[in-house]
């Protein structure tokens, strides 16, 4: 049943981005919907935001979501970038709180290694399979 409630909540979040009834009301942090003044920093922040998964509306990145939690997370990312933190450190900061799940980009270690190696391995496999097709010049 609790799962159902959560599912229902998740569905509500998807269909009803800012329903006042279901999500309460409070101030949105300033940096959630304002850019940083420095374009280079904003660009770095934007990349981080696109690589983080929204906690409430599970399929979207926090950059594409209207959920309040996504707004809070955007503000946090921009604040940390403004404070001079490196993008990867911010990703780690989020992972420390929500686990690997929150990052859309698995690390190149452990179980993620195979994932990142896949393109190259597949390309090699395909070339290996295709090599018999060709005839040498006669």
């Amino acid at each position: 049943m609790r799962r159902l409630v959560y599912l229902a909540c998740a569905l509500l979040m998807i269909a009803q981005p800012r329903l006042s009834l279901a999500q309460g009301s409070g101030p949105t942090p300033e940096l959630a919907n304002r850019q940083l003044a420095d374009p280079a920093k904003e660009k770095a922040a934007s990349q981080v935001m696109h690589a983080l998964r929204c906690i409430q509306c599970q399929g979207q990145s926090i950059a594409d979501s209207d959920a309040p939690m996504a707004a809070t997370m955007r503000a946090e990312v921009r604040q940390q970038i403004a404070d001079g933190k490196k993008p990867d450190a911010i990703r780690q900061w989020m992972i420390e709180r929500y686990g690997e799940w929150v990052s859309f980009e698995p690390d190149m270690k452990g179980s993620g290694l195979l994932l990142w190696a896949a393109p190259l391995l597949l390309l090699l496999l395909a070339l290996f399979m295709a090599r018999g097709l060709f005839r040498r010049k006669s």
């Binding site: 959560y6 909540c9 409070g26 101030p27 949105t28 942090p29 906690i55 409430q56 309040p68 939690m69 809070t72 997370m73 503000a75 946090e76 420390e96 709180r97 929500y98």
Partner: peptide, 14 residues
Amino acid sequence: DSEMGVQLKLGSSG
């Protein structure tokens, strides 16, 4: 926690 900042720090999701 009107801006959910502490919730975020706690790793709480809802």
